[in-house]
């Protein structure tokens, strides 16, 4: 769409097309408890991404034969509204959405203690109201907030951030333009306290050295996002000012 208007993703001084430095994130805000009906919910704005997350459960499994005797079944749906993209998107789930739903579910699962809720289902719904680069990372971050808001036993929160390659340079947190025109993208999600990687995808070409750089940038990015995520959760339950020891 706007391809022609952008000549360079990185200028001579290493500044990106939107004015960011190589290790700088887009603006991020989060809010917990935004939907009345859901057992837990959260809203995230990450650059131009605007994503709503809701959790229902643990609750009875439908259909019943899908239930598992010793643990809860985690389900996840990542979906984009028709108006969330540059060109209108068909409301029916695409193959891309189904794959992202799967990697997000598998990225959340290590954080959840599902054996505490046998024979139940926990459902996570993610709705992308506006999409930008890195929507799966923003989605998994919001999803873990909604799960914590629902009060489901968790080993850790999950936080996501991508790194990528533009004009031969490794940078953090690609936006839409950088994602489309850059040479590589590596979305990642981690458990920030337990130090596990729970989501990792990569496309494009990275040398061994570039991968190390990208991994470090994505990890640092995750920790910056975690800080905002943590504050959002504390604010909902304890008010803005009370975030430390009593």
């Amino acid at each position: 769409m706007s391809k022609s208007s952008i000549t360079k993703l990185l200028d001579a001084k290493g500044v990106r097309h939107d004015g960011r430095k190589f290790n700088e994130l887009r603006p991020v805000t989060m809010k917990v408890g935004v939907l009345e009906n859901a057992d837990g919910s959260a809203y995230i704005e990450f650059g131009k991404n605007k994503i709503m997350a809701a959790v229902y459960g643990p609750r009875e499994v439908h259909p019943k034969h899908m239930s598992v005797p010793d643990r809860s079944v985690l389900r996840c749906r990542y979906h984009m509204t028709p108006f969330s993209t540059d060109t209108r998107k068909n409301p029916a789930p695409s193959r891309r959405e189904i794959e992202i739903s799967k990697v997000i579910r598998e990225g959340l699962e290590p954080a959840l203690i599902l054996t505490d809720y046998p024979r139940t289902a926990i459902e996570v719904y993610l709705e992308v109201l506006q999409s930008d680069g890195g929507s799966r990372c923003a989605s998994i971050t919001a999803a873990s907030l909604a799960l914590a808001d629902a009060g489901i036993n968790m080993r850790d929160l999950v936080v996501g951030c991508a790194a990528g390659k533009i004009e031969g340079r490794v940078v953090v947190d690609l936006d839409d333009v950088e994602d489309k025109e850059g040479e590589g993208d590596m979305p990642m999600a981690i458990l920030p306290n337990l130090g596990q990687v729970t989501l990792l995808q990569l496309d494009g070409r990275f040398s061994r050295k570039e991968f190390d750089e990208a991994f470090k940038l994505a990890k640092d990015g995750c920790m910056k996002v975690y800080d905002i995520q943590r504050k959002a959760l504390m604010e909902k339950y304890f008010g803005a000012e009370e975030t430390g020891e009593q």
Binding site: A38, A53, H79, P82, P91, A92, E123, Y125, E127
Partner: peptide
């Protein structure tokens, strides 16, 4: 078009 998203209610379901 109008869609009741599954996140909107405990009784809404994903799917057509």
């Amino acid at each position: 078009t109008a869609e009741v998203l599954p996140l909107a209610s405990a009784y809404a379901e994903p799917g057509p």
